[in-house]
């Protein structure tokens, strides 16, 4: 049985439906605080769908319906009284395709703090922006052109800008949905290094189709298949000594 430290996300019997089709089947999983957990599995198995239940991004899809219970920090996030705004400030998200706003680099990072009222004066906001960009490893590259468009950066820089945008609001959890799939190997390794650094402060859940990436960065790995959680264990165990036949088939490349 998997030994976890302090648990921050607790899912029990979660099922997700798109209309009448079930995309996630009764998944129960606990996520450890301040570590990196990877979701792997063949494409279409429901990794993104499950990830998006943790910050309720699935709410934006009309046909999507969720059963079961998801707790973040002990609070049921699907309770009727919960507002998604503070939830998403607490559970940030980085998307597959870098999606900076078509605004300046500064405004990209400042947007979250601004709408949440995290800063009431310009100097403080400047500090927040600088700190977020520094932690995202982007400050040195962009400090002289903060007011240039964020969309003018390279793909890897854009993705780090999106990470800076996310951490500027000081979330506890960062969800990353295949953050490197649109990037070249050098940009990818930068983001991976960044994730390891960030995991000291943040809980990171990363969806990846690259098993090497999961093996490199994550402490725990969950293997999904056709909407089921097949196996969840420490990354070492999953890659060296999986208990399930399906997991072994997948990581040895027999399907996927």
């Amino acid at each position: 049985m998997l030994e976890l430290g302090e648990v921050i996300v607790n899912c029990a019997d979660v099922s997700v439906f798109y209309g009448d089709t079930r995309a996630i089947n009764n998944i129960s999983i606990d996520i450890e605080k301040q570590s990196i957990t990877a979701f792997i599995g063949p494409s279409g198995c429901g990794k993104s769908t499950f990830l998006r239940t943790i910050n309720r991004m699935n709410d934006t899809i009309d046909s999507c319906r969720i059963e079961g219970r998801v707790k973040v920090d002990g609070e049921d996030i699907y309770a009727p009284s919960v507002d998604v705004v503070p939830l998403r400030a607490k559970v940030g998200m980085v998307f597959q395709k870098p999606n900076p706003f078509p605004k300046s680099i500064y405004e990209n990072v400042a947007y979250g703090p601004k709408i949440h009222g995290l800063s009431n004066n310009k100097n403080h906001l400047d500090e927040i922006v600088e700190k977020a960009l520094t932690r995202a490893g982007l400050w040195a590259e962009v400090k002289d052109r903060l007011h240039d468009s964020g969309t003018g950066l390279s793909g890897g820089q854009q993705q780090r800008l999106c990470i800076a945008r996310t951490i500027a609001v000081e979330p506890q959890i960062i969800l990353m949905d295949e953050p490197c799939s649109a990037l070249d190997p050098i940009a990818t390794s930068k983001i991976e290094a960044l994730m390891s650094e960030l995991s000291a402060e943040y809980t990171i859940i990363i969806v990846t189709h690259s098993m090497q990436q999961a093996a490199r960065v994550s402490k725990r790995t969950a293997f999904f298949h056709l909407g089921d959680l097949i196996e969840y264990d420490s990354t070492d165990t999953i890659f060296t000594n999986p208990k399930e036949q399906k997991t072994e088939d997948y990581i040895t490349g027999r399907f996927g």
């Binding site: 991004m57 400030a89 999606n99 900076p100 709408i115 609001v169």
Partner: peptide
């Protein structure tokens, strides 16, 4: 692009904020 909306919602903008700050100006 829907990714712009996702970006705004992802940092905790409300639906109205995402629409007014990002979608409408574009």
């Amino acid at each position: 692009p829907p990714s712009i909306r996702d970006g705004a919602l992802g940092v905790g903008a409300s639906k109205v904020q995402a629409t007014m700050h990002h979608v409408v100006p574009l």
